Amino acid sequence: AEKTGIVNVSSSLNVREGASTSSKVIGSLSGNTKVTIVGEEGAFYKIEYKGSHSYVAKEYIKDIKDE
């Protein structure tokens, strides 16, 4: 089941290729951006990003809701 969340950062949140802080950064999301969460892996959520799937750190996503 998909969930949505809100990016909870003051500046921007790195979007990564994989579920690791050493993964390549492929983009960023600004605070209060709504994201669609399709899964989770460790400390990361797998999200829909620009037509494919990428990862963001869970600690920076708030207001998780089931869609």
Rank of each mutant, 00 (worst) to 15 (best):
residue 15 V to Y: 03
residue 55 Y to T: 01
residue 17 E to I: 08
residue 51 G to M: 05
residue 60 Y to E: 07
residue 62 K to I: 15
residue 12 S to V: 13
residue 42 G to M: 04
residue 50 K to I: 06
residue 14 N to H: 13
residue 11 S to D: 14
residue 49 Y to N: 02
residue 52 S to M: 13
residue 34 K to F: 09
residue 25 V to R: 03
residue 49 Y to S: 01
residue 60 Y to L: 06
residue 30 S to Y: 09
residue 66 D to G: 11
residue 17 E to R: 05
residue 34 K to S: 08
residue 24 K to E: 07
residue 39 G to M: 03
residue 59 E to K: 12
residue 53 H to G: 04
residue 23 S to P: 01
residue 37 I to R: 00
residue 10 S to H: 12
residue 24 K to H: 07
residue 48 E to S: 09
residue 47 I to A: 01
residue 28 S to Q: 15
residue 60 Y to T: 04
residue 20 S to E: 07
residue 19 A to T: 06
residue 38 V to K: 06
residue 47 I to D: 01
residue 10 S to W: 08
residue 40 E to D: 07
residue 16 R to P: 01
residue 47 I to K: 00
residue 44 F to A: 02
residue 57 A to L: 15
residue 58 K to F: 03
residue 59 E to I: 12
residue 5 G to A: 06
residue 9 V to E: 07
residue 37 I to C: 02
residue 15 V to R: 01
residue 7 V to T: 07
residue 40 E to Q: 08
residue 40 E to S: 08
residue 47 I to G: 00
residue 60 Y to I: 03
residue 54 S to E: 03
residue 10 S to I: 13
residue 22 S to C: 13
residue 63 D to A: 11
residue 49 Y to G: 00
residue 37 I to L: 04
residue 6 I to V: 12
residue 56 V to L: 04
residue 4 T to F: 14
residue 39 G to F: 03
residue 3 K to R: 14
residue 37 I to V: 05
residue 59 E to A: 12
residue 67 E to K: 11
residue 1 A to T: 12
residue 31 G to V: 11
residue 51 G to T: 05
residue 55 Y to F: 12
residue 67 E to A: 13
residue 27 G to H: 02
residue 18 G to H: 14
residue 64 I to H: 07
residue 36 T to L: 10
residue 50 K to V: 06
residue 36 T to H: 11
residue 21 T to S: 13
residue 17 E to M: 06
residue 57 A to F: 10
residue 12 S to G: 13
residue 52 S to V: 10
residue 36 T to D: 04
residue 8 N to I: 13
residue 56 V to A: 05
residue 22 S to R: 07
residue 55 Y to V: 00
residue 62 K to A: 11
residue 48 E to Q: 11
residue 8 N to K: 11
residue 59 E to N: 07
residue 23 S to R: 02
residue 27 G to Y: 03
residue 8 N to L: 09
residue 51 G to R: 04
residue 50 K to H: 10
residue 11 S to F: 10
residue 60 Y to K: 06
residue 18 G to Y: 14
residue 31 G to Q: 12
residue 20 S to A: 07
residue 18 G to E: 13
residue 35 V to S: 00
residue 17 E to P: 02
residue 65 K to L: 11
residue 23 S to M: 04
residue 62 K to C: 12
residue 25 V to Y: 04
residue 62 K to D: 14
residue 13 L to I: 15
residue 34 K to V: 14
residue 11 S to A: 11
residue 44 F to V: 01
residue 26 I to W: 02
residue 23 S to V: 02
residue 9 V to C: 15
residue 46 K to Q: 07
residue 17 E to G: 06
residue 25 V to C: 07
residue 28 S to I: 11
residue 14 N to G: 09
residue 33 T to I: 07
residue 62 K to N: 10
residue 31 G to A: 15
residue 61 I to P: 00
residue 67 E to F: 11
residue 1 A to F: 14
residue 42 G to L: 05
residue 41 E to Q: 08
residue 45 Y to G: 00
residue 45 Y to F: 09
residue 57 A to Y: 10
residue 5 G to H: 05
residue 48 E to R: 10
residue 45 Y to L: 06
residue 42 G to Q: 05
residue 29 L to G: 00
residue 45 Y to Q: 01
residue 33 T to Q: 10
residue 33 T to C: 09
residue 19 A to E: 02
residue 61 I to K: 00
residue 36 T to E: 05
residue 48 E to V: 15
residue 51 G to Y: 04
residue 7 V to W: 02
residue 24 K to A: 11
residue 44 F to G: 00
residue 46 K to L: 10
residue 7 V to Q: 02
residue 67 E to M: 13
residue 8 N to Q: 11
residue 24 K to D: 06
residue 40 E to Y: 05
residue 27 G to R: 00
residue 24 K to G: 06
residue 44 F to D: 02
